[in-house]
Write a protein that binds this DNA or RNA. Structure first.
Lengths: 106, 106
DNA sequence: ACGGTATTTCCAGAAATACAGAAATAGAAA
DNA sequence: TTTCTATTTCTGTATTTCTGGAAATACCGT
């Protein structure tokens, strides 16, 4: 991951509402959560949620799968892992930190 | 670290210029870098750099130490470690990921 | 095709951000 | 105190972000 992509993803997560959305999706596990359920649990206007979700989808932190009329959203763990990897690398550029084990691919 | 603090820090890092600043400071190691040297290596207007630095200092990702007329900035590894810890916890809330070893405290 | 539910797009306003030139401040040295 | 360097604050402009109501679209069941 390059610096600009990392920054774009950090920016996407760098908003309390969006971080809450992402966290909710992570907690929902691999099966994800529909936009409607997400809205119920976060309690914001549908249009606002849609905007925030788009921001997360654009940077690939969230993926969406259509199931009939409902859209199911799921956290993209791979991208998060890559992002964490990038941050750790940046943080450890000097070799001043111990090697880090990131979460294994599921 | 709570959600709002994490979001504020992610937002601070979520700008290419600021991420570059932070990365430069990390690479400079514990002794840090003066604002002037930082400006030389990033090549932006002094006032712009000052604003970005303030954003990073406010959320504690960067600390500053005065040495005579120059201000030395250094990356705050502890906060970065906490932030990474928060993200890993959020990402692994379901127990779906292996335990993670974050960089040791220097 | 119609009706209903789910979600997005359009629109707008308020607030925040990014940027940089110019002026101001802080500290050291002459 | 004057002067020099380093850095910040002031000022202003352009742009972006956040928010949500209203209207539009998508998909399904009947």
């Amino acid at each position: 991951m390059n610096l600009d992509d990392a920054a774009a993803r950090l920016e996407a997560l760098g908003n309390p509402t969006r971080l809450k959305i992402y966290r909710t999706l992570v907690r929902a596990g691999a099966e994800g959560l529909s936009v409607g359920r997400l809205q119920a649990s976060i309690d914001i206007a549908a249009s606002t949620l849609s905007h925030h979700l788009k921001s997360l989808v654009v940077v690939n932190l969230v993926t969406q799968t259509r199931e009939g009329t409902t859209l199911v959203c799921q956290a993209n763990y791979d991208i998060m892992r890559d992002l964490l990897g990038y941050m750790v690398e940046e943080c450890c550029a000097e070799g001043s930190c111990a090697p880090v084990a990131l979460p294994k691919v599921a």
